[in-house]
């Protein structure tokens, strides 16, 4: 019970977000109508992706100071899971945008920023494939990861704030907090985000454990 309470918490929170996300009260707004409920599912994808990338960069820094191969495995697996969540976020956002903004890919800084950030992490994976030697691969990819991370923050958080955007909360648009007067949306969005972040971490630990098993197997065979 000690070790897996957070997994149960993740399932409960997500169940809550599915039920309350569909049944709960939302403000009636033009253009978005009922699709405002997508906030509960689309936005947490980005939170989860970002959390996973932070985990990855933290473990890359840890690897550089410790040279422990397990830290490298955590870093690469969290990038792998983070990319999955990034794809989910992009696809769900495109679907939503198609119905509310009339275009699956409006020229929006947040969209372009997240697409470029995806390229950055795909480049990280390509770099790993280009390197044969294990320690060298771990070290050099960790260096690239740490180098790319602050630029990703600039890309996704600072740039959209200074340019026009369709997304709420940037470029002079008002945030969602303005419509959500009684806080009923916050009461779903925050638990949903936490639930998805926990689920992402869970997937990360699963992939890490598989990788570790493979790694130990390789050592044993050698």
């Amino acid at each position: 019970m000690k070790n897996y309470w957070w997994k149960i918490l993740a399932i409960l929170l997500l169940l809550y977000s599915i039920i309350m996300g569909l049944l709960g009260h939302v403000p009636a707004l033009p253009i978005v109508h009922e699709t405002i409920r997508n906030v509960y599912f689309h936005v947490p994808m980005w939170f989860t992706m970002f959390t996973l990338y932070i985990i990855s960069v933290v473990y890359s820094i840890k690897y550089l100071s410790s040279s422990n191969p397990q830290h490298d495995l955590v870093a690469v697996e969290s990038v792998n899971v983070g990319i999955v969540f990034c794809v989910f976020g992009l696809v769900s956002g495109m679907l939503w945008a198609n119905f509310t903004w009339g275009d699956p890919w409006p020229n929006d800084p947040k969209l372009n920023g997240s697409a470029i950030a995806t390229l950055m992490y795909l480049a990280y994976l390509v770099l790993r494939n280009a390197l044969e030697e294990e320690q060298k691969r771990a070290r050099i990819s960790a260096i690239y990861n740490v180098f790319a991370f602050p630029i990703m923050i600039v890309l996704m958080y600072i740039l959209p704030k200074t340019t026009d955007s369709l997304h709420p909360g940037s470029g002079g648009n008002s945030g969602f907090g303005q419509f959500d007067l009684d806080g009923s949306m916050k009461a779903v969005l925050y638990p949903a985000s936490l639930g998805w972040i926990l689920l992402g971490t869970w997937l990360l630990t699963l992939r890490f454990r598989i990788r570790k098993l493979e790694y130990q197997n390789d050592i044993r065979v050698d």
Binding site: I116, M120, A123, A130, A148, L159
Partner: peptide, 15 residues
């Protein structure tokens, strides 16, 4: 290889 250089640097330099 110069392909790797382009792949690694372009996403970083785009912002």
């Amino acid at each position: 290889n110069s392909t790797l250089m382009a792949i690694l640097s372009f996403p970083i330099v785009i912002p």
